[in-house]
Every structure is written in structure tokens, then in C-alpha cells.
Design a protein around this nucleic acid. Structure first.
Lengths: 345, 345
DNA sequence: GTGAAAGCGCTAACAA
DNA sequence: TTGTTAGCGCTTTCAC
């Protein structure tokens, strides 16, 4: 049986309450006594019992808020799954999770949601933020003035008081894609990149990583253009057709966004599907099928579930155990998917 | 605030104890009453509070036993890490984990360890079993006679009363290796396989999966021999040298066991390191370095941590919540490692 | 500063 | 068959 507060109290010749005050730095205790108790606890190998703690704290029931902007719908389901899993797990311990879902990108709606959560007395907030000054200011206000810790996920907002960021290292993702591309096209030939919006920093970093790594490791590979498809399959199809016409010998395409449908349609019509190697990002039903059929070589996955789950857990541990996250950037593992290691549906 | 037993009791006009008996099928209750209570609980959306339950059960403290045979030392550290993580997490809830580590393969030692755990009154056992009849019989006896549920991990023992198996699908692992190999050598040329012991079914399945997939998808690739290195780098070096002499044009090698050191040494001496693509299994410091240097193309990783962690958690949920595992085979996700997605050290 | 005591949700032993 | 009660380990309030 594990060591309990009571046992420490007996050993120290004080009461449970005193031990509690000593170990949790609650004040109202003579420093010498506190030190002695802490030492005894250490000696006895005391580790607080989470169940007891959770039960006792059930009165001031912990509540974590989540603000979710629906940017990429395919990806969101995974995030929601992760949030649900966290809610389930915390529910067991008497804590709750409040989710505010916002359709589309909308800074005002995000800030309103945050204020609403605050008025509901949440202890912490996990959010995927919009990229602008007002959001940044709001985060700072919450963290610094109201003492509501914030964790960002999926997209980060640097230089503000958010506790940490949980999500993909998009630059490394681009590099990984370049490495794989280099391998499968034999280290030479022409490759193209099709991405989303110019203004999206995450996508830009993927492109940058890809470009840098190709330049560094595969001097014989030529990057023949980075095109913007604005997340539209129709545009992607046009781009691909033009690209293939200009570069009939093209060997590979790196897609930073989910426009596989359009790209593959174009290649199909040109009769070169399968010959042009495709590496894409973020698994969904769509590219999953293309992967199985051999039309796409690799899909790089950023574990969506983890991005929904972890921020909530990090915040819970902070509020519940007082444990700060280990590092400011908690990058999710980059998963390389082929037709052979698809996750069960 | 979540629904409690007390609230249900009040609504039903009975006592807490009665509700407890109804919801946990403990008997000693009139069936009609039990039904009515269950219905009320359902209506109110009752979900038991794990903290309360854990606390109350702390008296009959749950204990999970683990029997670990140290087969591949490199891999074991990860498993131990997973066991440690599970112990940590369960410790929070007042449950404990007892580990019996056995050096080398030793059926008698495994069975002795199981008996020892039984005499210590563990509630369940997770183990990586030895492949033979006596172990199988012991598992059956434990599960059927003593009611001690057993989960196997890392290597499975089919046709016995073990609850489920958690580990890699080694056949699929072989297929994945074949798919990657086909891609990076351009779908033609000669490839070889270096494996461990003839008697090891896991390794054999990897080889089989590799062979089948090469045959099915890459008719222009020729498999030029499957060799046994008995987990020895020296033997692997000899094998590689001979293989390269007989097949100077060889394009790839699939290693089912950790003999990268020997293989690379031979290729180095022949001056063809880097040209011959290597795909290997199970990440360690050794092949991690070779991966970074570009001497190995891919390492297929079977998440060791998960294999230590999950069996314990599955058993805990069974004993604690009465939740049976969803399926008999819980295959761990196959992770494809390149120099770009190595886990942090 | 410190101790005593109530109570969080649940289980289990005992009483009725 | 049902109700009552004593904890499990911890926090928190109140009294001293």
C-alpha cells in the first residue's frame, strides 16, 4: 500500500491538515515544520493519490474550455475525436470539457468564444488561434490578467503568453517529403509543389522545408515551380495539366494540401498517373483510397487525434497537478503512411 | 456536476447500496427493482466516477503482474518504458504492477514466474510467452481454473485461453517493407533478405510477407536468397559479403533483425554502401545513426512502448471496469522511420 | 500556526 | 432483499 498523508502525519507527529499545507505550499505553517514534513514525505516516497485528490476537488470541479475553428473539415473530425477522448477520460475524474466550435475563420467569433468560456469560469483554454494581433492580445490578457492558461494547437501564435504549442513541425514535414521524394524518383528529375494559400504560414513552411532539403541533398532534382491551388480541386487540376504540359518528364509532385482528387484527375487524363509520384499531407477517405490504388506514394500524417487530445491533457495536468508542460513546442510525431500501414477505419 | 449514485437512489426511492447492487449486478436484489434502477440511471445519464471507485477499491488494491522474457535487449528498453508508464499511471489510482524479468528464453522460468505472481494474488498477467505447449497449458490453467486473465504481447501464442494479443502484425510488416523497397529501387533489380532464426515464427512471417508482396506487385524484382544471421553481426557481415560477390548488382536488402552493423560493414568494405538500399526493423541507437548518415533508407518500428503499456492497461480496464478488450488481435501501428521523423531521444 | 472534522463518489461488510 | 455505515486519500473550512 502506498504512503498516505495520514502516515506522514503520524511519523511527523502533526495532523493531516498540516502535512497537506506543507506539501502543497498553502502557507499558514511554520517553515521549519514544513521543511521537516517535506523531508519525511520524501524519505517515505510519498506520491499523492490521484483518486483521492480528484474526489476531494470534485467540489471545485475543473473545467477546460476548447475553441475550435473549423479550417480544414477533413482534418477536424480527428481533432474532435481527440477532444472527445479527453472529455471521456477527464469525465472519469469529475472534470469537464466545454467545446466552442466556430465555423470558418473568424477572429471576432474566436474572441467572443473565449470571453464566453471565461464567464463560465473555465480553468484553462485550448485553442487553434487565428493569426492576428487581436487574438494575440486576448491571449495575453487571459494568461496575464485573468490567470487562465492557454495552449495553442494545430496552428501556433508565437510571441504571446500562450503556455505551449502542440502540433506539427511543418518545416520538418516538408523536409521529410523531400527526402522520400528523392528516394523514390532516384535522386534526379523534375518535381513540382502544389500548395494552398500564400498567406498560410504552416503551408509555407512545408514548402520551404521541401525546397531546402531538395537543394541540400538532391542537387540533380529540379524544382519546377510552386503553385497555389487555394484548396480547390478544380484549380489543382488546371495547374497540374499546365505543369505536365510544360514539363512532360516531371517525376514527382508534393501536395501540401488535400487536392489529390484534382491532381490525379489531370494525371489520369494525361495518361501518366502512377508514373508521376505523389506525396501528400493529412490522411482522409479520399487520399486513403488513392494510396491503396497506388496513385499516391505517401501521405504524411499529422496525428489529428493527438492535437485534440493532448492540449486538454496538458492543461488538466497543469491545473490539477500543477505540472508545467516540459517544453514550449510539443511537436506531434510525423507519420508516414503508405498503403501498408493505414490505420484501421 | 455529474450524476451520482446518491441522486439515483433518491430518485428511485431506495438506498445507495441498492443502486450499487443494481448497476454492478451484484445480486441480492429484486430483479424488477434492479431493472427500474438501471433505467433511471440510463435516463439520468449516469457515468460512474472513476476516482470514487478507485478510492473505494483501494482496500482490495488491484495488482497486475507482468512476465518479461528478455529476447532482444535493444527492444526491451522500450517495453520497460511502457511498463513503467503504466505503473506510474495506475499508481495514481492506487493499483500496482509487479514485474518479473527473465533473462533469456526459459520456459520453466516463465511458468515459475507466473506461479509466483499467482501466489502474490495478482488479478491479471501480461506476458510475452515462450512458444511451446507447457506455456500454453499454464495459460489455460490460469485463465480457466484460477480466473486470472492473461494478455500476450510482442509474440503471440494462439489457440489458448489468452484474452488477446498486442503487438506487431509481422506479416504486414514484411509487406510494407516490400512496398517501400519496390518504390526506392524503381521496381526492378535483385534484393536479398537477412533474417534471424529459422524457428522464430515472427521473423518468418516478416520474410513471408516480404516475399509475397514482392511477387505480387513487383514481378521485375528478383529475390536472391533468404539468409539466417542468427542475430550475429559477424555472420551477417559474412553473408552480405558472399551475397554481394554472387550478385554484384544487388539493389536492396531487407533485414528482419538488428544486424545493420555487420551488413553495413561489409557494404562499406565493398565500397557500395549507400547504393544498396537497406530496410530494417526496430529502431535503436545503432540503426538510428546509420539512418541519419543515409546508410539505411527505412527502419520499420513496432512501437515497443505501446507493447509494454497497453497490455497492462487492457487488463486494468478489464479488472477495474469490467470492460473486455474490443478484439483478440490488437496490432500496433507500423511506424516508418526515416532520418526525418526520428523520435526525440 | 495547527488540529479536527466534514465530505467528494463509491464499495463492502453488516444489520435489519 | 434492502438499508446503514465505515472507510478509501485528499482538500477545505472552521475552531482554537
Amino acid at each position: 500500500m502506498a504512503v498516505t498523508l495520514q502516515e506522514i502525519a503520524e511519523r511527523a507527529g502533526v495532523s493531516r491538515g498540516t502535512v497537506d499545507r506543507a506539501l502543497n505550499n498553502r502557507g499558514r505553517i511554520r517553515p521549519e515544520v514544513a521543511d521537516r514534513i517535506r523531508q519525511i514525505a520524501e524519505e517515505m516516497g510519498y506520491r499523492p493519490n490521484r483518486a483521492g485528490k480528484a474526489l476531494a476537488m470534485a467540489r471545485r470541479s475543473i473545467c477546460i474550455g476548447v475553441v475550435l475553428q473549423e479550417v480544414e473539415t477533413m482534418f477536424m473530425r480527428g481533432i474532435l475525436e481527440g477532444i472527445e477522448a479527453a472529455r471521456e477520460e477527464l469525465g472519469h475524474l469529475g472534470a469537464s470539457v466545454v467545446l466552442k466550435e466556430i465555423k470558418g475563420l473568424n477572429t471576432k467569433a474566436v474572441i467572443d468564444a473565449m470571453e464566453e468560456l471565461r464567464s463560465q469560469n473555465v480553468h484553462a483554454i485550448a485553442m487553434n488561434p487565428s493569426m492576428n494581433r487581436r487574438t494575440k492580445e486576448t491571449i495575453d490578457r487571459f494568461a496575464d490578467e485573468y490567470g487562465i492558461p492557454i495552449v495553442t494547437f494545430n496552428t501556433d501564435l508565437e510571441d504571446c503568453s500562450r503556455l505551449c504549442y502542440i502540433g506539427q513541425n511543418t518545416y520538418e514535414c516538408g523536409r521529410a517529403a523531400a527526402g522520400l521524394m528523392g528516394e523514390i524518383i532516384g535522386g534526379r528529375g523534375e518535381v513540382g509543389v502544389i500548395t494552398g494559400y500564400e498567406a498560410n504560414p504552416s503551408l509555407n513552411k512545408r514548402v520551404e522545408g521541401f525546397r531546402d532539403e531538395i537543394a541540400a541533398r538532391f542537387p540533380e532534382i529540379k524544382l519546377v515551380g510552386v503553385q497555389y491551388a487555394y484548396n480547390s480541386d478544380a484549380i489543382a487540376e488546371d495547374i497540374t495539366r499546365e505543369l505536365v504540359e510544360r514539363h512532360p518528364e516531371i517525376s514527382g509532385l508534393f501536395l501540401t494540401v488535400n487536392v489529390e482528387q484534382g491532381v490525379c484527375a489531370a494525371l489520369e487524363k494525361e495518361g501518366i498517373i502512377g508514373r508521376v509520384k505523389i506525396i501528400s499531407n493529412d490522411l482522409n477517405e479520399n487520399n486513403r483510397k488513392l494510396l491503396c490504388d497506388g496513385n499516391i506514394a505517401f501521405v504524411l500524417e499529422q496525428n489529428a487525434r493527438v492535437q485534440g487530445y493532448e492540449p486538454i491533457m496538458v492543461l488538466f495536468h497543469l491545473v490539477f497537478d500543477g505540472e508545467k508542460p516540459q517544453c514550449e513546442f510539443q511537436y506531434t510525431d510525423l507519420t508516414i503512411r503508405t498503403r501498408y500501414n493505414l490505420p484501421p477505419v
